[in-house]
Simulated assay, not measured.
Amino acid sequence: MKNIRTAFSIYTGNIEAVLFLSVVILTPFLAIHQWVASICYYIGAFYGNPLFGDFANSFLVVLFLTICQLPFARFTLAEMEDEENRMKKSFVLFIKYGFSTFLFGILFSLGTFFGLFAFILPGVAIMIFFYLTPIVMAIKDQPARKSWKPAAALAKKHFFKLVLLLVAVTFIEIILGYLVNVGVAMITLNTLAITLSQMLLTLLLFPLMTIIMTVYSKQWFDELYPFAPTVNHREANTAPPKKVGFIQ
């Protein structure tokens, strides 16, 4: 519960910065997702294969939310370490490793869904064991190819805790999403209004989910790799020496 309280404290204490990150980072991805998913549903309906739209929609959700974990994870770590320029460091890391996360997200999404369609359990295993990779990227300040193994090790070490967290967060998001849909439907049945309400809910909940996962992941990483260099060590080693004197 201590980690949950820490995560909520970071979220509520920096709500303006968190919402700014959501608007700048998440909103474009959500808009692209809605546009591409609509086209895929139309194509699926035209050719009599609605599953194509469902697959494309789910694939894009996992891909885009995997990418968007990165800046929120970096912001959380900066807040936990009481660093300065938190927002700048979040954007810098997102730009630095965005393409690496994109490539990983494609493999992660495809592996998850092909595993689910084939035998179910392999897809679930892939999702759980590699879910923390973007967060480990932020912790280690390294690309995905150097972070997926530590992420899998964390998931293996804390498998049941991670599953419980993912199930709890997903359940809460489903319940809130249902309540929002019911509330909007009582006012209007306009599709755009329902879509925008779901996007707004994602803008609010996704950062909190990532912050919670980052707080837990940082604790697990420090326990499993107590002497491993992290983003703070790397920045300290690459920072230019301070000038001594009156002019600094």
Rank of each mutant, 00 (worst) to 15 (best):
F108D: 01
L110E: 05
L77T: 08
S58C: 10
I43G: 01
G123K: 03
S90C: 04
K146W: 11
Q142C: 08
I120A: 12
L116H: 06
F113K: 04
E84N: 14
L51G: 12
T133M: 01
Q34E: 15
G98V: 06
I139S: 05
F94M: 13
P71M: 06
C40N: 14
G44W: 01
G48K: 05
L132Q: 13
F102T: 04
E81A: 10
S90G: 08
W148V: 10
F114G: 07
D141K: 05
F108I: 01
M137G: 00
P150A: 02
P134V: 05
F55H: 07
H158G: 02
P50K: 04
G105Q: 04
G44C: 06
D54S: 12
E79N: 13
Q34V: 07
F119Q: 10
E79K: 11
Q34N: 14
F99W: 13
F52P: 02
A56T: 15
Q142S: 07
M87T: 15
L70P: 01
F130I: 05
K140A: 14
V62E: 07
L107Q: 01
K156T: 14
F104P: 00
T112E: 03
A125G: 06
D54H: 08
A37W: 10
P143L: 04
I95Q: 14
L121Q: 04
N57V: 06
F129D: 04
M80N: 03
G44M: 05
I106S: 00
A151D: 09
F46K: 14
I43T: 06
A45G: 06
R74E: 13
M80I: 13
L51A: 15
I39E: 15
W35T: 09
F129W: 07
H158E: 14
A45T: 15
F113W: 02
A73C: 09
F102G: 07
F75C: 06
P50I: 12
M87Q: 10
A56N: 03
G98F: 00
K89F: 13
I126Q: 00
V62I: 15
Q142N: 09
F46D: 14
Q142H: 10
L70W: 03
F159V: 02
F114M: 10
G53K: 09
D141V: 06
F52G: 08
Y97S: 06
F75Q: 04
R145F: 13
